[in-house]
Simulated assay, not measured.
Amino acid sequence: MPIVSMFYGIVVRMFADDHNPPHIHVAYQSEKAVYAFDGECLTGKLPRKQHTLVVAWIMLHQEELQAARTVCHGGEQPMRIEPLR
């Protein structure tokens, strides 16, 4: 599963053949969660601070996430998205 971004120990990935709704897979240490492109946590759980960072990152990059999903579903490697700094 391609890495789309990494920041503050958080790794964001996207599957090429994932189901709807559009979402990302996020890992922080041993914790994992799945987030929709609107920032909703669909499954799993991250610590509160990391959850807040992921939601903020999603809100900043919704258009890039949609574009990465389109590229991914076309069978290509999605582009990297700017991390939080």
Rank of each mutant, 00 (worst) to 15 (best):
E40I: 11
P22K: 10
R13S: 14
P47C: 12
T70E: 07
G74T: 00
P21R: 05
G44M: 11
V54F: 09
L46G: 11
E76I: 00
I10C: 06
G39C: 06
G39K: 10
D18M: 11
I58C: 07
L84A: 07
M79L: 13
A36E: 14
K32Y: 09
F15A: 14
P21T: 05
M1K: 06
I81K: 08
P2H: 05
I58L: 07
F37S: 04
H25K: 12
Q50W: 08
A56R: 13
P2K: 02
E76F: 02
H61D: 13
P47H: 08
L65R: 02
V55R: 13
E76M: 03
E64G: 08
A67V: 12
V55P: 11
M14H: 10
Q62L: 02
H25A: 10
L53V: 00
G74N: 14
K45H: 14
Y28R: 04
T52I: 02
F37Y: 15
A16Y: 10
L84H: 11
L84N: 04
P83L: 06
Q50G: 09
C41A: 06
H23Y: 01
A16T: 05
F7I: 03
E76H: 08
E82D: 06
T52M: 08
A67E: 13
A67Y: 05
D17H: 11
V54R: 14
V4R: 01
Q29Y: 03
M59G: 06
K49W: 03
I58G: 07
